[in-house]
């Protein structure tokens, strides 16, 4: 944020750039897609539920439609049959959008180095944050979320297709 000038009896004034203000808003209101693939999806649900509570990070508004969401958490292994679906879902999301590859399978294929599984979802769509773990604990997902928030804050040009 920029400088804060306060005068007695009136509101303070914050001067900043448009990018910083918009990014600041964006990073605390990420809307993930309700998109569960495998085991990691269960940990993703646990992240949203009572004990861990993903809303502490402003990302609890899980949307059923890709057209309403800006964060895709690829939670689980992506099979060859699923690959085109994942790609289409990503393309249906409006810009700006981000991707978290949750777990070993979506990052690099995990223990499934075989004919059926795509060896990392980054073969299909660009990934912003990788979370290791099989499956990662909810805390690890939250750490990834905070890393992504840092990245969102640093985005330089608005409206850019990044």
């Amino acid at each position: 944020m920029g400088q804060v000038e306060s005068k007695t009896g009136s509101f303070g004034i914050i001067t900043t750039t448009l990018e910083l203000a918009v990014n600041w808003g964006r990073k605390y209101s990420l809307w993930p897609l309700t998109f569960g693939l495998a085991c990691c999806a269960i940990e993703m649900m646990a992240s949203g539920a009572s004990r861990f509570d993903i809303s502490r990070f402003g990302a609890e508004v899980f949307r059923g439609s890709p057209r309403q969401s800006d964060l895709m958490i690829v939670s689980g292994r992506v099979s060859n049959k699923m690959a085109p679906v994942v790609k289409r879902l990503y393309e249906q999301m409006p810009y700006p959008k981000w991707v978290i590859a949750m777990g070993d399978c979506s990052s690099v294929g995990g223990p499934f180095n075989n004919y059926a599984i795509v060896q990392g979802v980054d073969r299909l769509i660009p990934v912003d944050v990788y979370v290791p773990g099989c499956p990662p604990r909810p805390e690890a997902l939250f750490y990834a979320l905070t890393l992504l928030q840092e990245k969102v804050q640093k985005q330089e040009k608005l409206g850019e297709r990044v």
Partner: peptide
């Protein structure tokens, strides 16, 4: 079905 086929048996 088959969208999560992971080849368990072959593995």
């Amino acid at each position: 079905i088959g969208y999560l086929h992971s080849g368990f048996e072959k593995t």
